[in-house]
Nucleic acid binder design. Structure first.
Lengths: 202, 202
DNA sequence: TCCCTAGTTGGTAGTTACTACCATAACGGT
DNA sequence: ACCGTTATGGTAGTAACTACCAACTAGGGA
């Protein structure tokens, strides 16, 4: 029962390397102008290996592993809270713990998120894929809200609520990226949610 | 100042032909299993011509021309109505006038919409592109809401509201397609909006 | 310590969406 | 009848993927 193998560590390492080199190239020369072969060369591996680690070129940017985090936090909130508040406040809180309360300290996490968002906002292919991945996020959130009571009507209502919350989140993210990450992101999200649902998410 | 030329009519005709043949092939054999060359052959034109009329293969399915309709109707509603109600009720009304009040009469428009939705729901590439095209719809709706007062804060709030409404619409559309178009679509949309915003969109 | 399995990587060849670049033919107004 | 415009076709090329097969190497057991 030992931890990560040498094999697994090496695999994770090359994966990390490929993605970081890819992001650098994308930021420098643009997403469309960078080929997968370029990424492979910059990483010292063959194009095949890139495809082994990232099934599509878009996955080099998307990477989203926030789904589980969100689902956990949503499940942790009191179940008697109205669904929209439950999801919305989770979004604000989870974001705050990710990027920090204000714009004070520059964090690597924040910079990477910003770079990814900028790419996604102005590259149509990435924008589309990101919106589709929000689909998976929506499903995770809905499952967390429902717990283990399979009621189709409740599921439908939860889907609508989750979809609407995530749409507001997306609007906030886009604006944050447009303004180069200067505004307070949790605040922006709360403002977008408040504009949509006329309630307090702060 | 005469109407459509012979040239324009022929162009529109081949465009219509290509799209209808494409939809038939997609429905019969699946989207991914159908190549653009297949579509061209089935339409009696060259692949080049297909690309001239539809810049991407996805555009053969997407076609959305509802943006202008929605924008018009949103603009027509009283400006003092809360934004979410204004947009949401427009969605319900516009859909009702498109697919009819109930499931009574089978309409060609309805069947085509249903076929397109089904393709979009289970083809990832199409789903992503459709979500991205909702982006354009969102922009059109926001512009209609704002009229000609360029206030950044109001624009942000309108974006959040429009995005949330369209997300609820999407949830309703997906469920409608899943249930083979049996439920009353305007009713579903109203229910999704009600679930998200806890208000009456009937 | 020595294999033997299994997983990581690389190479080759192919498919498919999509894009210039140029040629041809037909339409529309003069 | 003439000529610019426009729809279409052909050729060649790029780039994102996808089998299919070969080589190497780590991990675990004999």
């Amino acid at each position: 029962m030992n931890g990560p193998n040498l094999r697994e560590r090496r695999r994770a390492e090359t994966r990390r390397l490929i993605q970081s080199r890819a992001m650098r190239l994308f930021v420098e020369h643009g997403y469309d102008a960078t080929t997968v072969t370029d990424v492979a060369r910059a990483s010292g591996v063959s194009p095949m290996t890139v495809y082994r680690h990232f099934p599509t070129k878009e996955d080099l940017v998307l990477h989203d592993r926030y789904d589980d985090l969100l689902a956990e936090r949503v499940a942790a909130r009191p179940a008697d809270e109205p669904v929209v508040l439950r999801i919305g406040r989770t979004l604000v809180d989870a974001t705050r713990s990710l990027v920090g309360p204000a714009e004070g300290a520059p964090s690597a996490e924040r910079d990477l998120l910003l770079a990814r968002l900028r790419l996604m906002v102005d590259t149509p292919a990435l924008r589309a894929r990101h919106l589709d991945s929000q689909y998976a996020t929506q499903k995770a959130v809905v499952d967390a809200v429902l717990g283990d009571t399979p009621d189709p009507e409740a599921e439908f209502r939860a889907q609508a609520a989750a979809g609407a919350c995530l749409a507001a989140l997306h609007v906030a993210l886009v604006r944050w990226a447009r303004e180069d990450g200067r505004p307070d992101l949790p605040g922006l999200i709360a403002a977008a949610l408040a504009a949509a649902f006329d309630d307090d998410f702060g």
